[in-house]
Every structure is written in C-alpha cells, then in structure tokens.
Design a protein around this nucleic acid. Sequence first.
DNA 1: ACTGAAAAAGTGGCCTG
DNA 2: CAGGCCACTTTTTCAGT
Lengths: 151, 151
Amino acid sequence: MTTPHSACLHESGGFPDRKLLALLMADGRQSYAALGQQVELSTAATKRRVDRMRKEGVIRGFGADVNPAALGWSIEAFVEIYCNGQVPPKQMKEFAHAIPEVHDAYTITGEADGLLVVRCTDAAHLERVLGRIRDQHDVLRTRTAIVLSHL
Amino acid sequence: MTTPHSACLHESGGFPDRKLLALLMADGRQSYAALGQQVELSTAATKRRVDRMRKEGVIRGFGADVNPAALGWSIEAFVEIYCNGQVPPKQMKEFAHAIPEVHDAYTITGEADGLLVVRCTDAAHLERVLGRIRDQHDVLRTRTAIVLSHL
DNA sequence: ACTGAAAAAGTGGCCTG
DNA sequence: CAGGCCACTTTTTCAGT
C-alpha cells in the first residue's frame, strides 16, 4: 500500500506545501519558525500545514539518515526472488519481516517476483541470510547483486 | 563513498548511541529531553552525543519520509543497466544526475553494471525516461522491474 | 489571522567524577 | 573525557483579541 487514503496535493495552495516538503526532506529537524521564513508563512500557519500533511499521509514521518557502515552493516545487496507459482504480497511481507536483515521488500513486474534490500555485516553473514531466504517455502531461486557504490 | 571518515561506533559507551540512533530513525523530530529520558541521560548529554554523531558522519542528516504518490510520483521502478565495457562509477553518477527522475544509483556486482531507482508520474513518463537512459553513451540495454507493492 | 505571554526546547558554560 | 547542573535564548503553544 503505497497510497494510503487521500493522495495528491490539491492544486490550490499546493505551492507552499511542495516547498515545505522539499525543505523537510532536506532537513527534517528545522524549526517551524525557520521553515515559515523560507515559505513566507507564520510559524503557526507552517505548523498547521505540516500537521495536516502528516494526518493526510503525505508526510509519513520523520527519520534520521544513519550511515549503515557506522552500525556495522558493511554490505548491502539487492536480492531478486523467483517463486513457485504466484506469491501473494502478504506472504512476501511475512517472510520479509521474519528476516531482520531485510530492510525493504517489493513485489515487482518482470522475471522475478520480489526484490529484497538486504544489509549484512560481512560476506559470510550475507551468505547465511541468502540461505535463509532460499529456505523459505515457494522460493525457487534468488539472484543477488551486491552494492559496490552508492551514488 | 558510503563511509566518509570515521565509521564504526566505538564499543565503549556505544550502547546509548545505538539506542539513540534507533529512536531517531523511528522519530527524527523528538526533543533531546524525550530522547534523554529514554536513554536515561540528561538533555545536554543527549544533544552532545547526537551532535558528535553528526560530526562523525554516523548521522548523515534528518529527513522527512514523504509519500511519493502525494507528489505525483505514482510509478517506481528498478532499472538495471548493462554497459559497454567497464563504466567508472563517476560516469554512472554523472548521467544519473542528468536525469532528475533517477532517485538513487548504484554500481553492483552481477550481470548488470548499474542499478537505478526511478520515479515517474505515469507509464508514458517512465517510457520516456527509459528512452533517455538507453540513449546514454555506453548503455547497451536496460532491464526494468516496476514496483507493484512496497512492503 | 495576528499578538503576546507562558511553557517547553535548544544551546553553551562550568564544574565534578 | 563524558555527564550533570544551571543560566540564557529561541521556539512552541495557547490564550484573547
């Protein structure tokens, strides 16, 4: 579910909202006062807009961008999974949740049925995780691409 | 460059740092006071730790998690690119920067040479972007997987 | 929608273990 | 050093216009 309930920014007055989103994506800890100056709105008006966008699901939340290497996750890999017959997204989700090294999971078009983003501490760890993925029911095979550089 | 300068959390005293990172990843707008309570540290000590982790590059920044659909990006796709000979990451980076619909770019191991994460407004838009990617020098072909669901 | 006052959060100094 | 404490500034929040 990528689109929760309401979706697109209504065109009327959508301009400050878009700018607010850009500013918040660049620095999610800015004060409402600072944001307000940049969009030429009062602090209160700025906060109301941000609160509304949060309630609408336009803003899903705020997070920190943490260097994975600093936490010991030195290897990142994309793992395509090829399944037996059709695999409902629900099942994908469940088994992705069961493996903590899986940081993102998608169902996709094309040859593969799913795509996992996996983070591991080292090659041996990745090998073990791939084994666990392949041991899941209905997973026929995997195709792994290790990230060499992130641009 | 995924690892800027210093990297791993020093083990001594690394515990509150890890917890802080987890808390900040879950909600990057919490106050230092609230964070401090959860790690049983004073407000000032909490801020000092967060500031240090920012300087060290452990925390790269803070951002808002924005629903792409709300901005009109209704299609997301992974595009593998297959190149002519070897392609230096620098070149990948340059051409990825040249196409604004490319939101992430990786060089990877395996059959493909690179992987792009692309966001478009609709199928026609995606088709145009794929055309532009294929028109780049040294790009032999692409292999696209459109995201059906994000788990 | 703006204003201003009260409450809360951010920031830096200083001292202790 | 890293942590707690304290004073000072900025920001947020909530009244009453």
